[in-house]
Design a protein around this nucleic acid. Sequence first.
DNA 1: TTACATAATGATACAAAATATCAGATAATA
DNA 2: TATTATCTGATATTTTGTATCATTATGTAA
Lengths: 143, 143
Amino acid sequence: MVREDEFVALCRSHGLAATHQRRVIYATVASLHGHPSPELIYEKVKKKIPSISLATVYNNVRTFLASGMLREVSMHHGSLRVEPNNHEHHHLVCVRCRSITDLHAKNLGLLRLKTQPRGFRVTRIAVDVLGICAACAAKEVSK
Amino acid sequence: MVREDEFVALCRSHGLAATHQRRVIYATVASLHGHPSPELIYEKVKKKIPSISLATVYNNVRTFLASGMLREVSMHHGSLRVEPNNHEHHHLVCVRCRSITDLHAKNLGLLRLKTQPRGFRVTRIAVDVLGICAACAAKEVSK
DNA sequence: TTACATAATGATACAAAATATCAGATAATA
DNA sequence: TATTATCTGATATTTTGTATCATTATGTAA
Ligand SMILES: [Mn+2]
Ligand SMILES: [Mn+2]
Ligand SMILES: [Zn+2]
Ligand SMILES: [Zn+2]
């Protein structure tokens, strides 16, 4: 479990109030293996705080993501997107607006695995170049 | 627009019936730039077939994805997933069950862009090694 | 430490995205 | 053409996520 004073300092440094719910949510995420969904986190947190609301878990997961205290696995859109481009390519993904634009494969050096992962048959390697797109950068300057 | 006989042959080779709706949906996707959502495809297709149902668009987009006639942009789960692992790492992503497991960054050769994309401030490069996980491979053999 | 302003929580309503169901229509095959 | 399997479209339902708002807790400064 995350120490109380450490958690307070961490929240302070991110401009967040250090609430009991936040401490338990944060500690729960840190204790989990894999890549949990808010619903799974909610199930785990409920064992410590039975009265907690799913909305509070969502609110705080999003607050942690926005503040940088937690990261998200994928920066893609949440909903299904179809790929009409059949050429071999990768993507530029904006971490602010989640816009996705194509990037020719030749813009990246040769990709290869040093060791083959055991029990996993590799079919393709997809690269996301993450960052801030021009539109979002412009908005940032004008603020 | 995709030629009628070509489309029929394409469907035939994927074991699908060549319906009018499918032809229009497929041609619409091919005509679009970017990475459209089923809802956007639906809006475009409705101009050609006003009576079409959103469910039909969803059904056929998923049929195309399952058959390999179309690809999906991201093989990640549709819903939000949190990353508890703060170390620099990449992911093995199963294209069947969408399970995501961590892959140490050192298993990949140095990643770098040959040319910086104009107007895009790169912050990080995320790699998904796509393929079939052991569990899904086992299911495939037993079939 | 107390008082107060600000921010967070939890209950619930709402919305978006996706899937299930099924009667009737259409396509593949013979 | 007739038969069968598949597909379509209308609609209901589920899943995932967001908005609202009264109540409660936190941070700060007197
Ligand atoms: Mn693309
Ligand atoms: Mn990970
Ligand atoms: Zn952007
Ligand atoms: Zn799998």
